[in-house]
Design a protein around this nucleic acid. Structure first.
Length: 429
RNA sequence: GGAGGAGUGGCAGAGCGGUUGAAUGCACCGGUCUUGAAAACCGGCGAGGGUUAACGCCCUCCGCGAGUUCGAAUCUCGCCUCCUCCGCCA
C-alpha cells in the first residue's frame, strides 16, 4: 500500500512514477473521491463530537443530582437531529472509505529510480554474468529425459495421482532434492547469518493481504474449502514476512533475517501452455526463502546482501547464471526494486529464472502495520525484503542438466556430496 | 468432540453504565540529589486517523463484530484466541 498522504499531496507525481510500471492511476477519480472523503469525514466527526458532548452533559447533570429524564430534557435540543445526520454521514463515509481502500489496495508499489524503463522481461537490464556455460561434445538431454531413464523423475504417475504440473521424485533424485534443501539452509544459517524458521503452509486472508497477494491476485492461489478463508501459501515470503504484523519491533532486534524451507502452491492461472514439459513450472514446488525485516535506511544495502546470498548458492554449485535488474513492466506488485537470477539451462540454451530478490520498501509494512521506532522513539514503518535462495526444483533440474555426462549419468556437484552419502555420480544405468 | 475459565496499555494488574484513554506497580525517558553509581524524590511516558502554516483542536481503539442506551472497558448476542479437565488421535 502506498502512503495515502503522498497521493493527497501530489497524485500526479505518483501517477508519473507508476507509469514506469505500466500502471495507469486514475488521478481524477482519486481526487474526486478524496475531496468527498474530506468533507464527509470532517462533518461526521463534528457530529460525533457534539453527540459526545451532550451525553457528557447528561452525565454531569445526573451527577449533580438531577433526574435522568430531566437531564435528557435539558439537552434534548442538541440531540434532536444528530442521530439521523450522523447515521447518514457515517454510512456515506464508510462507503467512500471502502472505495478508497479498494482503489488504494490495488495500486502497486512505485519503482525505484534505478529501475529501467521497459515493458517485459526482454527489457530487463543485465548486471552480471557469472560462470561459463559448459560445452558438451554430445547431444544434451533435458532433465525430463535424464530423470526418466530410471523413473526417478516421474511425471506420468504424478499426473495419475493428481493432474498435470506435478512430479514424483524417487531414489537419488529425491535425495538430491533433500540435499539441495539442506545445503541451502546450512549456507544461509552458517555463512549468511539467517535464522531458520518453520511456518504454516496454510494462511488466512489478512496474511495474504499483508504481502500483497490479496485482494488483486486471488486467482493465482489455491483456496481451501471449509468454513475458514484459508489458502495454501504461494511462497514462504507470505507467512514469514507477516510474522510481526501489527507489532512494533524493538529497533535493537533489527535486522531480522529468516530463512525457511516450504512447499509453494501456485495455480498458474494464465500460464496454460507455457513450460508444460518438466518441472520448470509446477503447481507445487519447494523453495528455500530468505526474508529480511530491516530499518528503512538499511534496505538498500540489504537487497544487495540478500541477492549476494542467493548468488553464493549458485556459485557454490558452480552453476552459470545471469543477474538482471527487472524493468518497470516486469516488476512485481509489491516490489520497489528486484534482481532476478537466471540459471543456465543447456537443454534450452538459455538462462531461466531461479531466484527473485526484492526490496519492497515500506509497501508491505504499511499493509501489515509492521513498525519499529526511529531515534526519537516514534513508530516508523520497517522495510521488508525477500528472495529465493533458491527455488529447489529449478535448482535440481539445473544441476541435472549442467552436470550430465555422455552416458546419461549425472555428476554430483562437490558441494552436495556430503549430503549424498559421498556419492559422486547418480543416474548411471 | 464435551464441560468449565479467561482475554484491559511494553509487562503485571484495578476498573459502580456517566467529564475513563483508562487507577496502581514495574519497565522506560528526563531532572534533583551524589565525587560517581544505587536508593529516594519530582516530571514525562499507548496507537491509528482527521484538521491546521503551526500551536492546538477533534474522532476512533480495553480480543473481533453486531446490539441495548442520551451515554458501554463495564449489559446482551455471535465469532476468534488462549488456559484447565474429559474423550479421540499423529
Amino acid at each position: 500500500m502506498l502512503d495515502v498522504k503522498a497521493l493527497r499531496a501530489d497524485a500526479q507525481a505518483v501517477a508519473a512514477q507508476l507509469q514506469k510500471k505500466h500502471f495507469e492511476l486514475d488521478v481524477s477519480a482519486f481526487e474526486a473521491l478524496e475531496a468527498r472523503r474530506k468533507s464527509v469525514q470532517v462533518s461526521s466527526e463534528q457530529l460525533q463530537a457534539s453527540k459526545k458532548k451532550a451525553s457528557k452533559q447528561i452525565g454531569q447533570l445526573v451527577g449533580q443530582g438531577m433526574s435522568v429524564d430531566e437531564a435528557k430534557a435539558k439537552v434534548a435540543d442538541e440531540l434532536k437531529d444528530i442521530d439521523a445526520e450522523l447515521e447518514s454521514a457515517s454510512t456515506e463515509l464508510a462507503d467512500i472509505q471502502a472505495q478508497l481502500d479498494a482503489m488504494l489496495s490495488g495500486i502497486p508499489n512505485v519503482p525505484h529510480e534505478q529501475v529501467p524503463e521497459g515493458k517485459d522481461e526482454d527489457d530487463n537490464e543485465e548486471v552480471l554474468l557469472w560462470g561459463e556455460p559448459k560445452q558438451f561434445d554430445f547431444a544434451v538431454l533435458d532433465h525430463v529425459d535424464l530423470g526418466g531413464r530410471r523413473d526417478e523423475l516421474d511425471f506420468e504417475r504424478a499426473a495419475k495421482l493428481t493432474g498435470s504440473r506435478f512430479s514424483v521424485m524417487r531414489g537419488d533424485i529425491a535425495r538430491l532434492n533433500r540435499a539441495l534443501i539442506e545445503f541451502m539452509l546450512n549456507q544461509h544459517c552458517d555463512e549468511h547469518g539467517y535464522e531458520m524458521i518453520n511456518v504454516p503452509y496454510i494462511v488466512n486472508n489478512d496474511t495474504l493481504y499483508g504481502t500483497g497477494q490479496l485482494p488483486k491476485f486471488a486467482e493465482d492461489l489455491f483456496k481451501l474449502h471449509g468454513d475458514s478463508e484459508y489458502y495454501l501459501i504461494p511462497t514462504a515470503e507470505v507467512p514469514v514476512t507477516n510474522l510481526f504484523r501489527d507489532e512494533i519491533i524493538d529497533p535493537n532486534q533489527l535486522p531480522l533475517k529468516f530463512t525457511s524451507h516450504t512447499p509453494c502452491f501456485r495455480s498458474e492461472a494464465g500460464s496454460y501452455g507455457r513450460d508444460t514439459r518438466g518441472m520448470i513450472r509446477q503447481h507445487q514446488f519447494e523453495k528455500v526463502e530468505m526474508v529480511q525485516i530491516v530499518k528503512p535506511e538499511d534496505s538498500w544495502q540489504a537487497l544487495e546482501d540478500l541477492t549476494q546470498h542467493a548468488e553464493n548458492i549458485l556459485q557454490a554449485l558452480e552453476l552459470p547464471y545471469r543477474k538482471v535488474r527487472l524493468c518497470g513492466g516486469d516488476l512485481g506488485f509489491s516490489a520497489h526494486m528486484t534482481y532476478d537470477l537466471e540459471v543456465w539451462l543447456p537443454s534450452q540454451n538459455t538462462y531461466r529464472e531461479i531466484s527473485s530478490c526484492s526490496n519492497c520498501g515500506d509497501f508491505q509494512a504499511r499493509r501489515m502495520q509492521m513498525r519499529t521506532r526511529d531515534e526519537n522513539g516514534k513508530p516508523q514503518l520497517v522495510h521488508t525484503l525477500n528472495g529465493s535462495g533458491l527455488a529447489v526444483g529449478r535448482t535440481l533440474l539445473a544441476v541435472l542438466e549442467n552436470y550430465q555426462n555422455a552416458d546419461g549419468s549425472v555428476t554430483v556437484p562437490e558441494a552436495l556430496r556430503p549430503y549424498m552419502g559421498g556419492k559422486e555420480v547418480i543416474l548411471a544405468k
